[in-house]
């Protein structure tokens, strides 16, 4: 598919475990989670709530330490968040004091690029996510879908080698969600980014992913990794789509 000829893992998640110890005892949130994502690949992580998806997201992002194992990005262990890893959250987390253009351009201000160059890059990204005309709006005036577009453009501005998304379309209505999914696929095709996408929505995973990592709960671990071998654009009504959908759902529920 979109995999480049180098089969080097862009991301390697190697034996990740996470245990929370408290006075009431310890909880094993994740255990022995291992898989890889190759460059240019679109991988979704699905699983029931409580399977540690978000914990895994935070560990991969370097926001939280694992109690076992290592995450490698381009061969180097990830220990803290950095510009090589673009994060998109369900709750957007835009900077409310910055306009759309200000949010998108945030990472570029560190780059030391010339003003004109930076402005042009911001405009390109704003256009890429379809927000031209809203450059000067503040986040408070944007809908959920628009906010998530800004968050995506802001993450892309840092030119990360991996885009890591945690249920990014979990807070928008069904129609907007569909639109955002299509746009994300277009952007993925256009930019060739590697995407690791956490969701609880099986249909979303089948629609988007090259491969789906199905997780199990208590403790959170990888149950199965499924290649989704359907040409894009994928239709919910296709038999192949339904087959994958039911197979994944079955895996998650049993």
């Amino acid at each position: 598919m979109a995999v480049e000829e180098t089969d080097v893992a862009r991301v390697r998640i190697d034996g990740i475990g996470k245990r929370y110890d408290s006075s009431k005892g310890s909880v094993q949130a994740l255990e022995g989670v291992s898989f890889g994502v190759t460059a240019g690949e679109f991988v979704c992580i699905v699983g029931p709530s409580g399977c540690g998806k978000t914990t895994l997201f935070r560990i991969i992002a370097g926001l939280e330490p694992a109690t076992a194992g290592t995450v490698y990005l381009n061969g180097d262990p990830v220990e803290s968040p950095g510009p090589d890893l673009g994060l998109v959250f369900q709750e957007y987390h835009l900077f409310p004091w910055r306009t759309v253009a200000g949010n998108v351009g945030f990472a570029l201000e560190k780059s030391g690029a010339a003003d004109a160059e930076r402005k042009q890059r911001v405009q390109e990204l704003v256009n890429l996510v379809g927000l031209d005309g809203s450059e000067d709006s503040y986040p408070r005036d944007l809908s959920g879908g628009m906010k998530q577009r800004v968050a995506l453009a802001r993450a892309l501005a840092a030119e990360p080698s991996l885009l890591l998304m945690d249920e990014p379309f979990g807070a928008v209505d069904a129609q907007t969600k569909k639109m955002l999914q299509d746009e994300l696929l277009d952007i993925w095709t256009e930019t060739g980014k590697t995407i690791l996408f956490v969701t609880h929505d099986v249909e979303e995973a089948v629609k988007l992913a090259d491969r789906v990592v199905v997780m199990d709960k208590e403790p959170g671990r990888v149950r199965e990794i499924v290649d989704i071998d359907i040409d894009r654009p994928r239709q919910r009504s296709d038999d192949a789509f339904t087959d994958y959908y039911e197979r994944l759902l079955d895996r998650i529920q049993h």
């Binding site: 968040p81 950095g82 510009p83 890893l85 994060l87 987390h93 945030f106 560190k110 993450a155 840092a158």
Partner: peptide
């Protein structure tokens, strides 16, 4: 966290 991930 977002700011750190954007290079701050």
């Amino acid at each position: 966290d977002v700011a750190r991930s954007l290079g701050v």
